[in-house]
Design a binder for these strands. Structure first.
Lengths: 194, 194
DNA sequence: CTCGGCTGACCAAACTTTCAGTCAATATCG
DNA sequence: CGATATTGACTGAAAGTTTGGTCAGCCGAG
């Protein structure tokens, strides 16, 4: 992928985070990226193609910044917590990525082309968390009888639900974080900690 | 609200569930409702006004069909379970309402006008569940130390997360249901049942 | 020179919104 | 009671606006 494409895609994420997928106008995007509208068509064929590529870009980028945020050697249990809580952080980058991700996921309900990448990205995320819970169990940081798969699916779904409430102004961020922390404890300890 | 307005609003829910908020065109809506486009403007001022009223209509209707679905005299614990599971049911009415609700909630992230009705409707739902958990606790159907508020917020958020995954084709319905059932047990019993 | 990257200008189609005006029902008046 | 205004609901048609998408051609690096 060329530098120019990356430029356009990151601009797309910004525009989507600001106006939603519904509000993404090719002209707005061109302005945000500082290029002509025609160039977008040159690189991405059409609006649908652009959205498709943007979705891939968002999930790829999410995976990257997620990894970067966590010090190597962190124990798996803490790792799970950091990974999940990470989505509920009020920095421009995360807010932007979360908003765009939520929008693209929602669009998948109506656009079959987006379904498969959404499914793949979700599966990957759930798989990561599930794997970490597995490890944490081996190290005795998680109660036995916990189903890593189930817990991972519930916790990531919960994060998405909380995130959307936060981003739509329905829920305060600190409340969302505290709810998530309790949920993690509930899932992994089978009783709230402290 | 006149019968005619109700007719248009229910058509709007159908169109939104089918094409999304972005895909709602005034002309399509007019066709779906069997009226002229001008009539929609006569009753709702403009597209934004229509969306706003549709949101109110969806939440009102959700509350109504939810009540109808549950036999009076049901014990509170079962009531909670039915209420939550109810959103994960593949009937046209529920799918329609859930899809429209998800769309409108997502739109609230970008449209301040929609925020307040979304917040109100959510608070009402959380309040209902929380109240029922309270009652269930009094009747000994829920473990002590459970925070009804917290559990209600987490469970409803989880339902929204699971629902969106289901509707976007990311998650099979029966899996979503089973995940939710386990979450309820985890939250209310502080240990999975059976 | 030439070729991929890139653009300004442009357009047809898609959409929203407006408007003049019809019609049935209801109120008003002589 | 009959004639006449008034009103609210509603529509067809078209104006007005926005948007996705195309295209002929410019430009700079090799």
């Amino acid at each position: 992928m060329s530098e120019r494409q990356r430029l356009i895609l990151s601009a797309a994420v910004r525009v989507i985070a600001r106006d939603g997928v519904r509000g993404l106008r090719m002209e707005d995007l061109a302005a945000e990226a500082g290029v002509s509208t025609a160039l977008i068509y040159y690189h991405f064929k059409n609006r649908a193609g652009l959205l498709h590529r943007t979705l891939e870009y968002v999930s790829e980028r999410a995976g990257r910044y997620t990894d970067e945020a966590i010090a190597p050697g962190t124990d798996p249990r803490t790792h799970v917590e950091l990974l999940l809580l990470h989505e509920l952080q009020d920095t421009p980058a995360i807010r932007e990525n979360s908003t765009a991700w939520g929008e693209l996921r929602a669009s998948a309900t109506f656009d079959p082309v987006l379904r498969e990448p959404v499914r793949t990205a979700t599966a990957e995320w759930v798989g990561d968390i599930s794997g970490l819970i597995d490890q944490a169990m081996i190290e005795g940081q998680v109660a036995p009888h916990v189903s890593p798969e189930g817990a991972a699916e519930r916790l990531t779904s919960l994060v998405e639900g909380l995130s959307e409430r936060w981003l739509s102004g329905t829920l305060m961020l600190d409340r969302a974080q505290s709810l998530l922390r309790d949920a993690i404890a509930l899932e992994l300890d089978r009783a709230p900690r402290r």
